[in-house]
């Protein structure tokens, strides 16, 4: 950090806040759009994020890498909205779901199934995933956060993130290959960040 920035931070909280957050805005915006599915709701989510970040600006400015912190807040806000929207209708013991993940067989298609279809169809299949898997996929495969960063953002162990990523990828292939019309699995998988704590 340059001497200029350090002196600037002493004087102007708003400038320091801008310097911390601005480099991450585009990436967070992409994530917000993917999470929410449309720019209008994504804009509201971003507004909530920036207000929350402003309230905790002193904490952010102490971080070496505020990006994952901001993504974590964005994710939590997204989950809060998702829950309020009442997407889930059944409570399922999340621990049981995690334990059964290792029993899931690897995808057996011997031909690539995604290469011949449009990106919009792939994204539609992503939206059919359980929310926890979809979030892991969007963060890791979409926005390039490392598995360790995703684990921090969604507040689960690294192994759980790897498992979710695998199941998410397999799920997308399955949805595309089968053209299934079943309801989104999000209806039964309601795990959120707070429940693992």
């Amino acid at each position: 950090m340059s001497r200029l920035i350090r002196l600037w931070q002493r004087l102007s909280p708003a400038a320091a806040f801008d310097a911390c957050v601005q480099p991450h805005i585009e990436r967070l915006w992409r994530l917000a759009v993917r999470f929410q599915g449309n720019p209008s709701d994504a804009e509201d989510l971003m507004q909530d994020l920036l207000e929350r970040a402003w309230q905790r600006r002193e904490e952010i400015q102490q971080l070496d890498a505020p990006g994952p912190w901001l993504a974590k807040v964005l994710y939590r806000l997204h989950i809060d909205r998702w829950r309020r929207q009442g997407v889930h209708s059944q409570l399922v013991n999340w621990e049981e779901l995690e334990e059964t993940s290792d029993l899931m067989p690897a995808v057996s298609e011997e031909q690539a199934v995604l290469t011949a279809i449009a990106a919009s169809e792939v994204l539609a299949a992503v939206d059919r995933l359980p929310e926890a898997q979809r979030a892991a996929l969007l963060l890791h495969d979409g926005e390039g956060y490392t598995v360790e960063e995703v684990a921090t953002i969604v507040d689960v162990p690294v192994g759980t993130v790897k498992s979710r990523l695998h199941r998410a990828r397999a799920g997308v292939r399955h949805h595309v290959a089968e053209g299934t019309k079943s309801p989104p699995a999000a209806c039964i998988e309601m795990e959120g960040p707070g429940e693992k704590q």
Partner: peptide
């Protein structure tokens, strides 16, 4: 099967990298 999976993961990443509406 694993080669196909690997190809699909690459394609999935490409799809997720599609641009979103501007901020």
């Amino acid at each position: 099967a694993c080669r196909a999976f690997y190809q699909d993961v690459s394609h999935l990443r490409s799809a997720l990298a599609e641009p979103v509406p501007p901020l």
